[in-house]
Design a protein around this nucleic acid. Structure first.
Lengths: 334, 334
DNA sequence: CTGAAAGCGCTAACAG
DNA sequence: CTGTTAGCGCTTTCAG
């Protein structure tokens, strides 16, 4: 039942090496023997054992993709788009993808540096890593190829692909300003992600630049979580002076905020305008359709994947730092 | 830099075998040596080479998940939910997931039987396989463990997990009937999936059972594709006698149909009621919110994953045929 | 253009 | 409780 390279070699009266050369297409083999060997391979339905090949060649042609293990992670539209981009490029280059959802638990603190050591992957892509993740420093000290998506830190040993988050937040605030808003609140994301920090910075810098009122009660923290944003939005509404617009650091929080406003009998955008960030799929389906800053999420995945392959194949040396442009999407909510 | 089991063994003055026993936790080792070895492992930051382990043990602890390679497959809510279920169970059992998006191209006709032969996976889950896929028969003849999700064929060599599609369609038609509808059209899915066939059967059987009018012009084929359904819906509207309700074999087609009705100035559900099947995420967000038959999609994934592990570990023998219940979700569209 | 030898790093099987 | 032997199936390296 199980056919090995030796079986093929015996049948063809050649050495294993010749068969191996035919299989890989590399190295010189006479057309005639190659043809004969191929015929036998087809006839016997032989497929090389990838594990043996990997052990010997020290390459697995597998890319590990580390994603945060959240409830139903694949339903997260953001992660789904990143994965699409990563996978498309990897497949085009004959690499396979292994998904590694990792829970951010302390007892697993070195989980993916260990994965790197296990030799299962030729490289890794880390999606939505935490700012203080100890794995990242450990990886950076190794020579294992890896790329961070949605993480920004200008370090000589780190490779990342991210969106221009600061600029995106700036764009949002200026749009609200141009629409006449002067009192703008902000729902921040998880402060342990560089993303969230950048968007906060964009907000703060821009209201300062425009000379708008800074009110610390207008800044709440929603952890990139719809329910949390739903709760925290109330704090903004409780302020003695109510803002006329709320900018949220991502779309899911914007949806939570809109739900709260609706519950309080406030109309969006007439009473309060709401903006999100990301442009996830349902942004255009909800009512009112969400005005937001679109990140090129699928492109982030593609770029990360291509960059990793370049690192693996030595076509590129770290550090690799890429920032992609974002875009204002005007809809109904602001 | 690269530490192997031999390095650990040398440092601890034991044989590789003893280290291997400590690593696996199986086989007798004196507590004292075990402790000493563990200390050295920690100190040296040793991680076993998984590839070498797999080659030797003939198990990879990896499950291959075959999904149809469509544009942005991870954005397909259905696939995402299946993957969530599969992954959750696999991780709990220390298995990893490798995603294999496969294009249904003729030149790749034996792609996953070849994957099975490559020894990379201990088992495979095939999601949304086509009825006539030649791989399935080939796999069935091998002793490689695999489970089909969303495929139903009572064969002694096949293992599948599916929803009760016939019953679901029946449920939908009876609900429409109870709501007063007598003229019910049907938008079928891809006839090369068992799913689509079952839902068609449920529709046909039930209109017959209820004594409703059968009109072949009221049955169109939408290929589980929103745009196609949008087009095909027109054929139904062109009929001399227009139905009062349209049952669609999945939600995405229902959305396409609703768009067409809106474009034609017809109100849903007042002029024509529309029902879907699946209950994908956006079903509750669109206007009007979609009345549909909910498949336990996440559960399908979990069940498939658990079943496959049972097959791999010999706790279960083929054939394994499981059907999960569906449920009517009443919303606004019907 | 082809082959022989050596070994990737681990575990199964058996022996002590 | 511990060790020895013998591979797993392939590719690398070097030799012809």
């Amino acid at each position: 039942m199980k056919t090995t390279i030796s079986d093929i070699a015996n049948r063809a009266n050649v050495s294993k090496m010749t068969v191996s050369r035919v299989l890989s297409g590399k190295g010189p083999v006479s057309p005639k023997t190659a043809e004969r060997i191929n015929a036998i391979i087809d006839e016997m339905g032989y497929q090389p054992n990838l594990i043996a090949r990997s052990l010997s060649s020290k390459r697995t042609m597998i890319i590990g993709v580390i994603i945060p293990k959240i409830q139903h992670m694949f339903l997260d539209n953001y992660i789904a788009q990143i994965l699409s981009g990563i996978t498309d490029i990897a497949l085009q280059n004959n690499y396979r993808i292994m998904l590694c959802p990792i829970e951010p638990r302390p007892d697993r603190s070195m989980e993916y540096i260990n994965l790197a050591k296990s030799k299962l992957f030729d490289g890794m892509i880390l999606v939505k890593a935490k700012l203080d993740d100890p794995n990242i420093n450990a990886l950076a000290e190794s020579d294992f190829p890896f790329v961070l998506v949605n993480y920004k830190k200008f370090s000589k040993k780190l490779n990342f692909v991210d969106s221009r988050n600061v600029e995106g937040a700036t764009m949002a605030i200026k749009y609200l300003y141009d629409s006449g808003h002067r009192d703008i609140a902000f729902v921040a994301g998880s402060i342990d992600e560089t993303n969230a920090k950048d968007r906060l910075k964009g907000y703060l810098d821009t209201i300062k630049e425009l000379g708008l009122e800074y009110n610390e009660n207008w800044i709440v923290y929603g952890d990139f979580n719809k329910e949390k944003a739903f709760q925290e939005a109330q704090k903004i509404l409780n302020c003695s002076k109510r803002p006329t617009a709320i900018f949220c650091a991502d779309d899911s929080m914007a949806i939570g905020v809109i739900e709260r406003l609706r519950q309080e009998g406030l109309r969006v955008p007439n009473d309060i305008a709401v903006m999100g960030f990301d442009d996830i799929e349902i942004a255009e389906y909800i009512k009112p359709a969400l005005t937001t800053i679109r990140q090129p999420i699928y492109e982030l995945g593609k770029t990360a994947s291509q960059s990793l392959l370049n690192l693996i194949n030595g076509k590129q040396k770290p550090p690799l730092h890429k920032l992609l442009d974002v875009k204002l999407i005007k809809r109904e909510s602001a």
